[in-house]
Amino acid sequence: MELITLNLLFIAFFIFIIHSIETLAYAVRLSGARVKMIASALSLFNIMVIVSRLANMMQQPFTGSLIDNAPIENTLEFVETQFRIVIGASTLGTAFGMILLPTFIALFSRAIVYLSEEKGSVPSFMKRILSIKYIKRGLTHLTLPRFTYLKDTNIKDIPVRLFIVNMFITAIYTIGVLSALFASLLAPERAITSTMASGLINGIATILLVIFIDPKLSVMADDVVNQRGSYNKLKSMSLMMVTSRLFGTLLAQALFIWGAKYIAWFTKFIV
């Protein structure tokens, strides 16, 4: 059976887009602090999160189909290879988002102002930014990252503990669905229970993100707006977070099988 299928490429593309969007979401707070409109920035951030979560839900049934279409012989090895390709797409998507980060900080700064001018009306805002005029204007801000962008960033502003926590949260979120699906192959008698565990895993990762990561960045952005903090420190922190995300997707490759085995073991206490 062919390893690289059209279905697999479609899933990998979806994962690529999802992780690109979630990486670029870090630019929203930087843009909000830049134009001193944090509340409007969070509204734009929420729009991006909804798009990302919707795309994630759309790809999950297709990811499940990889198991349904797997050959009877060497099923575990075949599915593992395909899932590792999907995880690899998350790494590429995160790297792509990092490359576009300077461009989107400039674009989001203008988008936040536009959202405010439209009195918070999302339909009017979308109609405006998706017009040919504004798309052409947006292309003029396209720029590749330069080393000068790292100017004034200080490695001392990067808390190592937060870097590691975010890396593990990203890894868990990346493999949540995949490890649960693979666990259904390791314990076929508890396949449905294992598959349904993916929602719990991603839920825990989201809660950890909300508790440990988001408040820290939000407070720093507020400090910048209120002139109590440094924009460069916020930028250093944001760059640290996206770098941590990248390492998290790489760590996901190492944790993938371990996570599947843990889920398969844990379901014994449920069934």
Rank of each mutant, 00 (worst) to 15 (best):
I4W: 08
L6D: 04
N7A: 06
F14V: 03
I15P: 00
L24F: 04
L30G: 09
S31T: 07
G32W: 03
S40A: 12
S43I: 07
S43N: 14
L44S: 02
F45K: 03
I47K: 02
I47V: 04
M48W: 01
V49L: 10
I50P: 05
S52C: 10
R53S: 12
R53H: 09
A55E: 08
M58Q: 09
Q59S: 11
G64R: 01
L66I: 03
D68F: 10
P71F: 07
E73M: 14
N74M: 14
L76C: 03
E77F: 13
I87H: 08
T91W: 00
L92E: 00
G93V: 01
G97Y: 09
M98Q: 07
M98A: 12
I99K: 11
L100C: 03
F104K: 00
S109L: 02
Y114Q: 02
E117V: 08
E118S: 09
S121W: 07
F125W: 00
R128E: 07
S131I: 13
I132G: 07
Y134F: 12
K136W: 04
P145A: 09
R146N: 14
F147R: 04
Y149C: 11
N154W: 01
N154E: 09
K156N: 11
P159C: 10
V165T: 09
F168H: 06
F168Y: 10
I169F: 01
I172N: 00
T174S: 13
L178I: 09
L185A: 02
I192F: 11
M196H: 05
A197K: 06
A197F: 14
G199R: 04
I201H: 00
V210K: 14
I213S: 02
V219H: 06
V219S: 08
D222K: 13
V225T: 11
K235N: 15
M237K: 07
L239R: 05
M240C: 12
V242I: 11
T243G: 15
S244N: 10
L246A: 03
F247S: 09
L250S: 08
L251A: 13
Q253H: 15
W258T: 15
G259Q: 12
F266P: 13
